[in-house]
Amino acid sequence: MKRDTILSTAARLFAERGFNNTPTSLLAREAGVAEGTIFRHFKTKDDIFLTLIRNVKDQLISDIEKYLEVRAPETSIEKVVSIIKSFYVFVKKNRMEFSLIFRDAPTRYGERNDNVFLAIKDIYTYLGDYVLQALQEGQRDGSIRADINTRDTAHMLVSTMAGLVRAIHFQFIEPSDDLLRNVVDNCTNFLKPRA
Results as ranks from 00 to 15, higher is better:
K92F: 00
E65S: 07
N115R: 10
M161T: 06
Y126K: 01
S159H: 11
G128Q: 12
K121E: 09
F87S: 08
E137H: 07
I84H: 09
A154I: 05
S86G: 13
A167R: 07
T150K: 09
P73Q: 04
G163P: 00
R166W: 13
S86K: 06
D114A: 07
K121S: 06
D152F: 05
A162T: 11
Q136M: 10
I144K: 01
A167T: 04
F90A: 07
G128T: 15
Y88A: 08
S62A: 15
G163T: 04
S99Q: 01
A154E: 06
K93D: 11
I61Y: 05
V70Q: 10
D104Y: 02
I61G: 00
G110I: 07
F102M: 03
A105N: 01
D129N: 15
E97Q: 10
R71I: 11
V91Q: 14
L100E: 10
S62F: 14
I168R: 05
H155W: 13
R112W: 15
L60V: 00
E74N: 07
I148C: 05
Q136G: 04
I64F: 01
V81D: 12
R140Y: 12
L132Q: 14
Y124F: 12
M161E: 05
E69V: 04
Q59L: 13
R140F: 11
L100S: 03
E69H: 05
Q136E: 13
P106W: 01
D58T: 01
I168T: 04
E78P: 03
I83V: 11
K85D: 07
V131D: 09
T107W: 01
L60Y: 02
G128V: 08
E74F: 03
M161G: 07
N149C: 02
I120L: 11
E97S: 09
S159F: 00
